[in-house]
Amino acid sequence: MMKLLLDRLLTTIPALIGVVVASFLLTRVLPGDTAAYFAGPAATPQAIEQLRQQLGLDRPLPEQFGHYVVDLAKGDLGKSLTTGQPVLSDIKARLPASAELTLFGLILALLIAVPLGIAAAVRQGTVVDHACRAIATAGVSLPVFFTGLLLIYVFYYILQWSPAPLGRLDVFTSAPRGVTGFYLIDSLIAGDGETFRASFSQILLPGITLAIFSLAPIARITRASMLSALSSDFIRTARAAGLGARTIIVTYAFRNAMLPVITTLGMVFSFLLGANVLVEKVFAWPGIGSYAVEALIASDFAPVQGFVLTMAILYIVLNLLIDLTYRVIDPRMRNAS
């Protein structure tokens, strides 16, 4: 198993090198002058030129790239000009926020979509099936910023059940001591029920917003792969052997139908993690997506490069996890070279 892990990590090195080069080049190619932006609208050309020299932007590209790679090797992702903080600490602070929100939304979506997909496949062509299709279509058709705003309007403005959509915690609660960076988990570790409740009520609306959006792909793929599993020969054998409906559906069909569901899950997760900028904006969530977009608008290279690299690493780790899960589920994968 360790050997496999190492093997897989080794094969990702070329991809990572590619990401480093591409993210560096792309940020330089983009229009926009960093020095001019940060010097401010009133700056004189001399001041801009001076700032440019300070930032090292007057150097030839290969030299800039060299510096970048050397810093990277030391674990230094550079400094954000917008926040004034090292990019690494910015990302460290913001990644858990995004990850917690995405995971929360995804787990919520899973809890609804998987049973729904299974029910739709088992009762194919019935009301359940049509309901599944309707819910999935509606979920994916509504833009997240719209669902988000609607939820805020109903639950915060009208019903006042929900706290103000202003980040991960209200102003009266302080963040729990960081162990995982996930407030829900950290507050539980600290045994702080108050903070847990506070952060839970904050994450609920954006989590639901994400869940509604990611329901559709999960429910549909569950339904499709359940249908093909249910029509296979071994299900007929199981039925002929008189096994109970529960055993047939869960142990026999669903375990075989899980692989495509997990693949979809991985894709949805990595997509949402970086791309739910709109949800983060609507709920003032201090996440990594909005951080990267703000930096991009300001032509602030270091955070953008750091962001792209982080996402690439996450993606690799995620895929590795999915592969390992495959092996746990499907014995045929274990001997495949």
Binding site: D233, F234, R236, A238, R239, A240, A241, G242, N256, D330
Partner: peptide, 21 residues
């Protein structure tokens, strides 16, 4: 009754068994 009093076996035995159990 199925499996206890009356049983059935099929063609293509490999496909007739759950591949991951």
């Amino acid at each position: 009754l199925r499996g206890r009093e009356m049983s059935m076996i099929f063609q293509n035995p490999r496909a007739a068994l759950n591949p991951i159990r």
